[in-house]
Structure formats: C-alpha cells, structure tokens
Amino acid sequence: MSDREGTSGGPPPTDDDLSLPKATVAKMISDLLPSDVVCAKETRDLVIECCVEFIHLISSEANEICEGESKKTIAPEHIIGALGKLGFDTFKDEVEDVLKDHKQQQKDREKKVSKFDQSGLTEAELLAAQEELFAASRAKFNSAQQ
C-alpha cells in the first residue's frame, strides 16, 4: 500500500533496512532456551532474518486482503485472514487472544481517571498544597545548610 503509517515521507525502506532489535531477539532466544544452551551470533541473525521474512509474508498477504476489500488500512482481521490463507491456522487462536487482551487494555486505559480527578481537590487547593510542600522542602534545605 502506498499510504504507510509511521513513515517520514521518504522512500520506503528496502529489505536490507528491515530488521528487529538484536538485543531483544537475543533475550527472547535466551529466555526460551535451557540455561546450559548458548545461541551463536550467526544463529541469532538467522532467526532475525526468518522473523523479518515471516512478517513480510504475512503483511504482504494481509495487504492483498485489505486491497481486495478496498480498504486503505490493514486491520487485525486482515492479519488473521492472512495467517489462515497462508496455512498458519495454528497461530490464529493465539493471535485472536492477544488481540482481545490488547483491546481490553485499551479500554482499561481509557477508563482510568487522572490523578487530578482522583484527588477530589480543586486546582487551587492542589496549588496551595504544592506551595506548602515547596516551603517545607526549602525550610528543611535551609536548616541543613546551617
């Protein structure tokens, strides 16, 4: 798709520009392997290349599904459809669970009340309390200096 979110308007990145954070992948690999097994740098780099290729494959298929529906934005449903179309049905349930959890976290974040609202105080009362704290801090600092 030509309408790419998150790009700076420059040319799209080439496949050589695409990668994953090496430290993050190395941590994931070490977390999955037994403690007495070491992963070579070349192996980590191969895992990264495989992951990038997998992401490219899924996103390309999702893009085709998206364009087939005359949409301009790839939605989670397009990714799930791409997984099925490419024969990765075993991943679909887990992806749907993660999506459900993500949507719930989004709702929970939107429901959170700000600390200002939670305080139950007016802005003037909060400013007065802040000034009292500053004065107490100054007094403590000045007494420590003497």
Rank of each mutant, 00 (worst) to 15 (best):
D101N: 13
I55S: 09
V113K: 01
V25Q: 06
L46N: 03
P34R: 02
Q106L: 00
K140F: 08
Q145Y: 08
S143W: 14
T43V: 09
D93I: 07
D16L: 07
P13N: 09
E42F: 03
D16M: 03
T43Y: 00
K85Q: 05
K111H: 05
S59G: 15
G87C: 08
C50A: 02
V38C: 15
S143R: 08
V113G: 00
R44F: 12
Q104I: 08
T73E: 04
G68L: 11
S30Y: 15
P34Y: 00
F141E: 10
A40S: 13
N142A: 10
L121D: 00
G10S: 10
K85I: 03
K112C: 00
G120N: 02
K107F: 02
V25S: 05
D93P: 04
Q145R: 11
D15I: 04
G9M: 01
H56R: 12
C39H: 03
L33Y: 04
L32V: 08
T24S: 14
F141Q: 12
L86S: 10
I55M: 07
P76T: 15
T7C: 05
T90W: 12
K103S: 09
K100I: 06
V98C: 08
D97P: 04
E123W: 11
D17C: 10
S70C: 11
A40Q: 11
F91I: 08
T24V: 11
L20K: 00
D101H: 11
D45Y: 09
G120T: 04
Q146W: 09
K100W: 14
E67Q: 10
D36K: 11
A82S: 11
P34A: 03
D101M: 12
L83T: 01
E42Y: 07
M1Q: 14
L18M: 09
L126C: 10
K41R: 11
